[in-house]
Design a protein around this nucleic acid. Structure first.
Lengths: 336, 336
DNA sequence: TTGTACGCGTTATCAC
DNA sequence: GTGATAACGCGTACAA
């Protein structure tokens, strides 16, 4: 059974104590430079590798950040996570990623796992289902900082980074109105998610502010299962007063809508304009290109992890439950 | 300073020894059911959380798998990783993800980090740049199993999971030939990557086997920077004998090619057919839809992690350097 | 400058 | 069934 090389092994070989070896390895000032040299050489030769576990145990610090996100099914979270990983690595931290698959139970289980792994901080984007926040409270109670991404939790005071969905949606709908559209429909996501609520609000207010009536029949809440989009599009076109634009809650829905419209022999944006949300992969691949709101993914990841790393270093008394709200820009391609 | 609740705290409160507490918590058989009950109750009440670090230290086992991939810039790795995470979680393992950004130095640094974190196994997809494999050898030397994903390393004997790029490319090119194309171009990726080499081989052999000449001017090696695609497309169309089809090494290139062809006023696939590789997000968004080879992402992730978990459990003497080669299916949409 | 002794939180091996 | 005691690998007061 091959066991690892420890500082004790090095110490024996050099006839010194393991504390001296430790000092050499950690770069402690009080050590003879020759001793240190020979330790480093031998360590190299013996292919010594520090055991991070024991150090973490002693220092009660793991240099690990837990990242809890719902899914990787669009480009959004992968891109956010990539940026988070990059920034964290620069600061000497590693990340442990957990996917909740938008399932509350999985989210709780993963949170418990990250807790028992003694992460130094938690970056979390809650699942759509999550209504109970005890799993996050456990972190707070232990003095482990938590930053929310794209999520709201009114019970808990913790910093969060989000996109200004309201403003963005408002902007998108107003753009449609300015380009002459009158019957703008909203393909909405599940109302359980605060994100979707904010997008709906932006839609509603843009209509009101511009003197357009809110028509219930044009607001379609759906579960984001793409196969239903075609049905909705057909419905919108067959209304007594057909819709002339769709503001979709996300890009995949918008892309699906464009396909449906075209398959019915109609033109985008003349017969029906479409605007999405996210600017995911694929948004520029449609014909016409999808006009959509750009999610500032890298910036979101960067803000969130920087906020969290700052909290990790600061004393808990310095923590502030600030909300960082980033703007989503409207990218005009051709679908609206 | 709030410190964590330990088994010793529980022991004191109940006037028993910490060994007994440990036994209760781990479900050891030799323990009075009443004692156990009171321990579990108190643990719950005190919000006790096991410290995985110390257990890992003592058991020399972390239940952690290192996952080292190049990037998250297409849907490929995120989807693979999502599946790996799912399967690993089922088996009680967590994963630590590291992105190398296709940079050799980063890859080496990340590997060292994972090593010092004492991962139980490593799943790695090498960067394009990687030519030296010492960082992987270190794992092997310590008895930590490594599985390669989509990578080749002739120096090292380790299992790998890959797509049968050769067969897939052969299939795609043959499909183009059958549909009447004669001057099939290949937009190739950097030759340093074995994956790209295999795709090129499949292209070449399909031509040969079907009696078509290999024309050097139709083979374009490029660095996958999408902004160059338009130039290449124009070049291919302006040849004395213009190309009539493009087999692109990946989907983004193919999608870019379709756009370029259409922007020049030509038709896909009549004037120029296009086939991609990967079936990434966006492949079904183009007009016409992109005909491409489907990367069996979930299956690849599953195979790789299952192979690795098996090795983690087995003795090193049982390890076999098998190669698991999965088939990529041709998805015919409209671009060819 | 170096060595000794202890502790981090837990499990394992002995006794009893 | 339970309790000491020794590990796991390392850092660090404290003493020398």
């Amino acid at each position: 059974m091959k066991t690892q090389v420890t500082i004790y092994d090095i110490a024996r070989h050099l006839n010194i104590s393991k504390s001296t070896v430790s000092r050499a390895l950690t770069g402690h000032p009080n050590i003879n430079s020759e001793t240190r040299r020979s330790v480093l050489d031998l360590a190299e030769k013996m292919d010594y590798q520090r055991n991070t576990l024991s150090i973490s145990l002693i220092k009660n610090k793991t240099y690990t950040i837990g990242v809890l996100v719902p899914e990787f099914s669009t480009s959004f979270y992968p891109q956010v996570v990539a940026e988070v990983q990059r920034v964290a690595a620069e600061a000497g931290y590693n990340i442990v990623i957990s996917l909740s698959n938008d399932c509350y139970e999985t989210e709780v289980a993963n949170a418990a796992m990250l807790l028992s792994r003694k992460v130094d901080g938690l970056l979390v984007s809650l699942s759509n289902q999550t209504q109970n926040f005890d799993h996050l409270k456990k972190f707070q109670r232990r003095g482990i900082p938590v930053v929310l991404l794209n999520s709201v939790c009114n019970e808990l005071l913790m910093p969060r980074v989000m996109v200004n969905d309201y403003d963005a949606s408002f902007k998108a709908v107003e753009y449609l109105i300015r380009s002459g559209k009158q019957r703008i429909s909203h393909l909405a996501g599940p109302g359980t998610s605060a994100v979707n609520q904010r997008r709906l609000s932006g839609y509603l207010d843009a209509l009101k502010k511009n003197g357009l009536p809110v028509r219930e029949e044009l607001i379609i809440p759906y579960d984001l299962k793409l196969n239903k989009v075609k049905i909705y599009v057909r419905y919108l076109l067959n209304l007594p007063q057909a819709a002339d634009a769709i503001f979709a809650v996300n890009d995949p829905s918008a892309i699906e809508a464009i396909k449906a419209i075209k398959s019915l022999g109609l033109r985008v944006p003349e017969d029906m304009a479409v605007i999405g949300f996210g600017n995911n992969y694929g948004a520029e691949c449609t014909e016409p290109g999808l006009t959509t709101l750009n999610h500032p993914v890298a910036e979101m990841g960067r803000s969130a992890i920087n906020l969290l790393l700052q909290m990790v270093q600061d004393d808990a008394s310095k923590w502030r439950a600030i909300t960082k709200s980033l703007e989503a820009q409207l990218i005009v391609r051709g679908s609206a």
